[in-house]
Write a protein that binds this DNA or RNA. Structure first.
Length: 938
RNA sequence: GCCUUGGUGGCGGAAUUGGUAGACGCGCUGGAUUCAAAAUCCAGUUCUUUCGGGAGUGUGGGUUCGAUUCCCACCCAAGGUACCA
């Protein structure tokens, strides 16, 4: 019998599908374990070898946990709304639903052929109405709640209305968007319904607000940051401007502190937690109010260093601030206006690239220092950002480098308020070793005490307040796209109204054209017929009928992160038509025990989903406020791109080893399928590849064209994609699975390289030969000897700890060592091979199932208990210790495994070489490192 | 600049609380088998050497009987982030 992986893998994949081997029940007495992969976006290119890395790791762990007696939930689905399908629709007119469906089919085929143990009965697709019904439902829940600072959680809007009716909005401590004018209970009752709705909208957790967006007039649409390349649109190359538009926003800022604190409770990678902390960007400091000379308004600044307030020598405002126009003195008007206009025209990109150029203008106005009453000149400068803090800073040039540079540039005085600090060439920014000087009551104090003292005084005098500020901005939720979840809102008298829950899902309408309407409305505006009303079983035309009247619907759709912010709950109860997840299912599964995915989602998906989780927790729909206990980031698999080198302005390509470093050549990527293992290019294929290469000339070296190589992200556009299908074809899924694990630590990014794959393939063949030699079944019932048992138990121990610590690469090595040793012991004992086959099954499920079956078992290996190692086989008799004595007080043991310290002591004393040395001496202390070296202290 | 992670043979990578550095695999070299090849098996493989040794885990220091591991300073690479007051 040969190891015929093709037949084996096909047979077992069919068996698993027919027997629904991996279908998991919500009713089980076993302990639960929920292990999840980040679901893929089904792109047209299909899966490449990078995709399965995380899936293989999670599959190994899922299979391991099943062996360990857990009821394992290991589902998979598709994040199937997204831009590429829509782009494709714009180009070809093909409906995104159709391309998405085709792509999903392809993905499924590829996933199946790798033998993953997903429970496909729970598959979810974010673009399916059954699914996005609940995404819309969560949106409505957010719409119906506000954030109460006192309760420190979300509460229903109805609650807020009661408060307003009782005491207006003066005493409520809640979060709202911009400043809402204060009103009394009397006033609230006197407002008409429209005004009341307007006010409430400012408190809702999802709300409409003016937001700056990237507007591309050429395409008539809003673009995401990554759709803009060098200031123009990626598609079409049209210019992009900032434009203010009414957009739905999510009040994630309300959850800043809890998102920060929650990080301490979860076992996620430190680097990722750190990224989220930085993104949330908490700074503790104070607001300080500065009066303006001859003006009613005051300037409010945020500072993390209120202790340096006596060092203020000027103030800087963001040019965008409305206040700038009001306070600017007549003689400075012209200069200020010019500067403000210049700033508006500069893109964010230019402003960022231009850090070294210091610019600003004096407004002519002066502020009054709140403690000394000194006159402080007010400047504007574009290093101050309008949307962080209050858009104004108190400049302390001696303690802040940017203030320092600004002061030097414009010759503004610098006052040193730090004892013994030199500010000759740069600002003194050290906080820890600071003693304040020339600062009235703060003089002589250190940073910590000065902070306490100054905040107290500012608060007493009413000219400041201790404050915490966060960098995290509310998330814009509107997209002017077709292929996304419709927002379940209609408009009545211009005010947004929630759809009733019975009207969900609000289905995505059919459109003829996926571009914005001629009037500039989002693509959904092209719909002639919309909204299938489930209840009335009728089609509703273009507008929704709210009982009898007709109202316009919201035309924006939701962003890509909407569906992925809660999908993990849907897997628990994917068929539920009554709720996003049933109570019982949720009670059983609770949360994700292990979540695998890339770190590129650190400040996107992984932050938004924690926000929604906390909201759902507040309103009592889920029972934990962090949804994933443990997270592992799998590293990216990189591709090795191939390059040809073109002489500028010609069609001549020069071989890699022909040009000197002085030559200027343009590197052009070429498909890696045209290149062999020695980097030689198949020139004929290139000529046929794309029209631009039809007339290409090649300068060869020794008759061949050699390409250059570079390691970068694997991507279709870089022509460096390696398709797993080929490898499955050549070596089988089990080899591919083990090889991807063998490549290196799971968290690490690594280039794809098939050079070593034969080693893993050889291993599986060797493993097969433990069962079959020359086509004869050689497994026997002979009792294994001690050596073989030791090999087995060492392997069990190592494999178990390796899987538990996700060291899959070293685990594969362990298998290889084990098989080599059994081979040289000529051990084909069933007693050894049965447990070994179970050990191997998470890594190579197909061959394990096959051999398990041939060992005489009738059931699938999936739920067989994992072997437990027996310590007895690891401890040797003390007489067998080979010991070397190095002449001093150190002895070296060279035994592979030794656990019993007393046995080691005995062995050392009994050893003939050490006997003499130890004669008459009684060791006081033994320092024993099992396996290694012994120190004896006399 | 800041944050995070990492730097070990020709290559991917091992090395537990500090205890024989280079497991395992690839590649390479030699041998067995074969008419021959593939496959398989066995042996060798950090560098250097006057064959006694000597050097060696990015660089330079330190702690220790002993450092890839701990401490300090620096260099390099990858990823993230950025006028955040």
């Amino acid at each position: 019998m040969e190891y015929n992986f093709k037949d084996i893998e096909n047979n077992w994949q069919r068996y698993w599908a027919e027997h629904e081997t991996f279908k998991v029940s919500n009713l089980s007495k076993k302990p639960k374990f929920y292990i999840l992969d980040m679901f893929p976006y089904p792109s047209g290119a299909g899966l490449h070898v990078g995709h399965p890395l995380g899936y293989i790791a999670s599959d190994i762990y899922a299979r391991f946990k099943r062996h360990k007696g857990y009821n394992v939930l290991h589902p998979q689905g598709y994040d199937s709304f997204g831009l590429p399908a829509e782009q494709y629709a714009i180009q070809t007119g093909q409906h995104p639903a159709k391309t998405t469906k085709e792509n999903i089919l392809r993905y499924r085929t590829q996933l199946d052929q790798m033998g993953f143990s997903f429970d496909w009965s729970r598959e979810v697709r974010t673009s399916s109405p059954d699914f996005y019904k609940w995404t819309q439902w969560i949106f409505l829940m957010l719409f119906d709640h506000y954030y109460c600072n006192k309760a420190n959680k979300a509460l229903p809007i109805s609650n807020l209305i009661k408060c307003f009716e009782k005491e207006g909005n003066i005493t409520v401590n809640v979060i709202s968007d911009s400043k809402v004018d204060s009103f009394s209970a009397m006033e609230w009752k006197s407002f008409d319904s429209l005004k009341q709705q307007q006010i409430l909208l400012a408190y809702r957790l999802t709300y409409l607000a003016e937001a700056e967006v990237n507007w591309c007039a050429g395409l008539g649409t809003v673009l995401a940051n990554d759709e803009i390349i060098n200031g123009v649109s990626e598609r079409g190359g049209f210019p992009v401007n900032k434009k203010k538009m009414k957009q739905w926003s999510m009040r994630i800022g309300a959850y800043s502190e809890r998102l920060l604190l929650g990080l301490d409770k979860i076992d996620w990678p430190d680097s990722l937690k750190e990224m989220q902390r930085n993104w949330i960007g908490k700074s503790i400091g104070a607001k300080v109010f500065f009066k303006i000379e001859g003006h009613d308004a005051q300037i409010e600044v945020f500072t993390t260093r209120p202790d340096t307030v006596f060092g203020v020598t000027f103030m800087t405002l963001a040019p965008e601030l409305d206040l700038v126009g009001e306070i600017t003195k007549l003689e400075q008007k012209k200069a200020v206006n010019t500067y403000v206009l210049e700033t508006q025209q500069r893109t964010q990109r230019e402003r960022m690239a231009d850090i070294k150029n210091i610019s600003g203008v004096f407004t002519g106005a002066y502020a009054l220092h709140p403690l000394t009453n000194d006159k402080i000149p007010i400047w504007i400068g574009d290093y101050v950002l309008a949307d962080y803090g209050t858009g104004a800073v108190m400049a302390v040039p001696c303690g802040d480098q940017r203030d320092y540079d600004f002061a030097k540039h414009f010759n503004i005085p610098i006052k040193n308020i730090f004892k013994g600090a030199s500010i000759e060439s740069e600002a003194y920014t050290d906080k820890i070793n600071t003693v304040i000087d020339h600062s009235d009551f703060l003089t002589g104090l250190q940073y910590k005490d000065a902070m306490k003292s100054i905040i107290k005084v500012l608060e007493e005098k009413g000219c400041g307040q201790g404050t915490v500020n966060y960098r995290l901005r509310d998330a814009i939720f509107s997209r002017q796209r077709y292929w996304g979840e419709p927002i379940p809102i209609y408009y009545k008298d211009g005010m947004p109204q929630p759809l009733s829950l019975e009207d969900l899902p609000l289905n995505l309408p059919e459109v003829e054209n996926y571009l914005p309407t001629p009037e500039g409305a989002p693509p959904l505006g092209n719909a002639v017929i919309w909204a299938w009303n489930e209840k009335e079983r009728s089609v509703v035309s273009n507008n929704l009928i709210d009982h009898k009247k007709v109202f316009p619907l919201e035309l924006n759709t939701m962003p890509g992160w909407a569906g992925s912010s809660w999908y993990f709950y849907r897997y628990m109860d994917a068929q539920n038509r009554e709720a996003f997840v049933g109570k019982e299912a949720m009670e059983y599964w609770q949360d994700i025990d292990l979540y695998l995915g890339g770190s590129e989602h650190a400040t996107g998906h992984l932050l938004y989903s924690r926000f929604w989780q906390k909201f759902l927790f507040d309103i009592g729909y889920v029972n934990v406020d962090e949804y994933a206990k443990k997270l592992i980031n799998q590293g990216m698999i990189l591709g090795t791109s191939a390059y040809m080198y073109r002489k500028p302005g010609t069609q001549t390509y020069v071989s890699r080893d022909l040009f000197k470093s002085s030559d200027v050549l343009e590197p052009i990527r070429v498909d890696i399928n045209f290149v062999n293992a020695s980097d030689e290019l198949d020139v004929a294929k290139v000529i046929q590849w794309q029209p631009q290469f039809a007339k290409a000339q090649f300068e060869l070296c020794n008759g061949v064209y050699k390409v250059g190589r570079e390691v970068e992200k694997m991507s279709k556009s870089k022509y460096n994609v390696v398709n797993p299908d080929k490898i499955c074809e050549q070596y089988g899924a089990d080899t591919l699975r083990m090889y991807e694990m063998f490549l290196g630590p799971i968290e690490q990014a690594k280039p794809w390289n098939t050079a070593g794959i034969s080693g893993v393939f050889n291993f599986l063949n060797k493993y097969w030969r433990l069962f079959y030699k020359n086509e004869v079944y050689i497994v026997n019932d002979i009792k294994p000897d001690k050596k073989a048992l030791k090999v087995l138990h060492e392997t069990i121990k190592k494999v178990t700890t390796d899987i538990e610590s996700f060291s899959f690469n070293t685990c594969v090595s362990t298998f290889m060592i084990c098989v080599n040793e059994l081979n040289s012991l000529e051990c084909h004992s069933k007693e050894i091979l049965s447990p070994l086959t179970i050990l191997l099954s998470p890594f190579a499920p197909h061959i394990s199932e096959e051999l398990w079956c041939r060992l005489g078992n009738t059931s699938s290996i999936t739920n067989v208990p994992f072997p437990i190692f027996n310590k007895a086989f690891l401890i040797e008799d003390s007489k067998n210790y080979p010991i070397s004595f190095n002449g001093k007080m150190r002895f070296t043991l060279s035994l592979s495994l030794s656990l019993n310290k007393d046995l080691i002591k005995k062995a050392v004393i009994q050893d003939s070489r050490t006997e003499e040395y130890l004669k008459g001496k009684t060791p006081k202390k033994w320092i024993i490192v099992p396996n290694k070296i012994i120190n004896i202290v006399f």
